[in-house]
C-alpha cells in the first residue's frame, strides 16, 4: 500500500497505490484525516492511478471522506481508477454520489 499526500492550493492530493483492503484502510484514513484537519483543505483529490486492487473497505474509506468533506462544504474527486477498481466504484453508486456533490 502506498499513500502519498501533498497540498496544492486549497486541494489535498492523496496518491494511493498497491492494494487497498481492510488491513490498511484504517492507516490511510487516519493519514488523510490528519492532513485534512491540519491543512483545512477545501477539496480532496484521491488519485487511484496506482491502485491495483480495492475491495469494499476502500469504498468505506471513500464514503467516509466524502461525508467529511461534505460536512465542511468541501468537495471530493476520484482520479484515474484502473478498470477493476472503476467497476467496483460504478457498482457501488459512489460515483453518482460524488458527481452530484
Amino acid at each position: 500500500m502506498k499513500c502519498e499526500i501533498e497540498q496544492a492550493g486549497g486541494s489535498l492530493i492523496v496518491k494511493l497505490g498497491g492494494e487497498i483492503d481492510q488491513h490498511c484502510a484504517e492507516e490511510i484514513r487516519s493519514n488523510i484525516d490528519r492532513e485534512l484537519d491540519l491543512k483545512n483543505s477545501s477539496s480532496l483529490i484521491i488519485d487511484l492511478g496506482e491502485v491495483d486492487f480495492m475491495d469494499s473497505s476502500g469504498l468505506g474509506l471513500i464514503m467516509g471522506r466524502y461525508k467529511k468533506m461534505a460536512a465542511r462544504g468541501g468537495t471530493i474527486m476520484l482520479a484515474r481508477p484502473k478498470p477493476n477498481v472503476n467497476r467496483l466504484l460504478e457498482m457501488s453508486g459512489i460515483k453518482k454520489l460524488i458527481g452530484r456533490k
Binding site: 475491495d55 469504498l59 468505506g60 457498482m91
Partner: peptide, 14 residues
C-alpha cells in the same frame, strides 16, 4: 467504523 456495508453486494454482483 466506516464500513461500507457493501461486502455481500460485491460478492453478489461479481
Amino acid at each position: 467504523e466506516e464500513r461500507s456495508g457493501m461486502g455481500f453486494t460485491v460478492m453478489q454482483s461479481f
